[in-house]
Computed example of a mutant assay.
Amino acid sequence: MNQRALPTGATAPLPAQPQWELRQIVDELRTVRERWREGLASSQECGAREFPSRQHLRDIVAALCAALFPMRLGPLDLQQESEDFFVGHTLDTTLTNLHEQVRRELSYHARQHGLQQTVPIEQQALAIVQRFARALPRIRAQLDTDVQAAFHGDPAAHSVDEVLLCYPGILAIIHYRLAHSLHVLGAPLVARIIAEVAHSQTGIDIHPGAVIGSSFFIDHGTGVVIGETAIIGERVRIYQAVTLGAKRFPAGSDGVLKKGLARHPIVQDDVVIYAGATILGRVTIGQGSVIGGNVWLTRNVAPHSHVTQAQNHQEVPRESDAVLASYSHQT
C-alpha cells in the first residue's frame, strides 16, 4: 500500500489493534518522558532530535578507514593509479558529513549548558574538522607502527595485510586513534560514539581520552578495557581480558562522582601485560616490565619487573624506585 507523507504537524493515526492497548501505553510513555525532562534542570530541548548519529558516525569511520588504507579497506575494484582520486573524493564527502555530526554535538552542548556563543557553532565545528583532517597523515603513520607491531608480535600473522584485514585489535586501534584526535580537538561525544562503535564490533573498550603511544598491539583483544585517563607508552603489548581501570570513585559533597580525575594506570614503554590481568588506580607499571596472566595489581611496579600470579610475587631488579618516582612526577 502506498503511504503518503503527513502534513507538517500532523500526527499519524495509531494502528487499529486493540489487543496492544497502544493508546494507554503511548500516553504512559509520554508521562514518563515528561517526568524525566522536568527532573533535568539543565534540559533545554529544542523539540527535535539534535544529537550526533551513531549510524552516520559508523559510516563515516568506515569511509575514513577506506581513505587511510585505500588498497586494503577501500572498494574491491580500486586500482592503484586512481588511489589519490578515490581518497580525495572520499575525504571531501566524509569530512563534510563529519562536520555536521560535530556541529550537532556543539549545538547540544551549548543548549545543555546555556552557553552564549562568541564564535558561531558552524565555524567552531569547521575548525575542529579542519584540524582533524590535517592530522590524518600523522594518524596513518602511527597506525602503520601498530600494524607492524601486530605482525612482528604474533607468530600466527603471515602478512601485514592479514593483520589489517582480520585483527580486531587493529580495528579497535584505528577507531581509537581517530576518536582520540576528535576528543582532543573538542568533540568528545562524537569521539565516544566512535569508540563505542568499535567496542560493539570487537569487544575492546578503549576510552578516546586515553593516551596511547605508537606500536601498540592488542592480541586477541576480547574483553580489553582501557579507561579514560590511562597513559600507555611506546611498544606496549596487551592480551585479551586485560583491564586498565580505576580503583575507587570519589564523590563530591552532592554525592555525585567527581569527573576528570586521573584514576587509571600509567604503563611505560615496552611493557607486556598477559591475559586476564587487572591493573587498577593511578599506579605506574615501569618500563620493560612483564605482568603475568590473571594478576591483580593496585600498586606501582618498578622498571624491568616480572609480576606473576603466584602470591602476586614480584621479581625486582636492583634499580631503585627513584626512576619510577621520577617518571610518575614528570607525567
Rank of each mutant, 00 (worst) to 15 (best):
P120W: 04
P120Y: 02
I121E: 13
E122W: 11
Q123V: 13
Q124C: 14
A125H: 02
A125V: 06
L126M: 11
L126S: 13
L126Q: 14
A127V: 11
I128N: 01
V129P: 03
R131A: 15
F132R: 05
F132D: 00
A133M: 08
A133K: 12
A133S: 14
R134K: 14
A135H: 00
L136T: 09
P137G: 08
P137W: 14
P137Q: 11
R138M: 12
A141E: 14
A141M: 10
A141G: 10
A141P: 02
Q142D: 12
D144S: 13
D144K: 13
V147R: 11
A149R: 02
F151G: 00
F151L: 03
H152E: 14
G153I: 04
A156E: 09
A156Y: 09
A157E: 07
A157F: 10
H158Y: 13
S159Y: 07
S159W: 06
E162P: 04
E162T: 09
V163E: 06
V163F: 09
L164N: 00
L164C: 02
C166P: 07
C166E: 12
C166D: 11
Y167W: 13
Y167A: 07
P168K: 02
G169T: 02
I170P: 08
L171T: 14
A172C: 01
Y176F: 12
Y176R: 03
Y176W: 04
Y176I: 05
R177G: 02
L178I: 11
A179G: 09
H180C: 08
H180I: 06
L185C: 07
L185D: 07
G186P: 07
L189K: 15
L189V: 15
V190G: 09
V190N: 10
V190L: 08
A191W: 05
A191I: 06
A191S: 10
R192M: 06
I193H: 08
I194W: 08
E196D: 15
E196K: 01
E196Y: 00
V197S: 13
A198I: 05
S200H: 14
Q201W: 11
Q201N: 10
T202S: 03
T202C: 02
G203T: 10
G203N: 02
I204W: 00
I206H: 11
I206W: 12
P208I: 04
G209V: 02
A210Y: 00
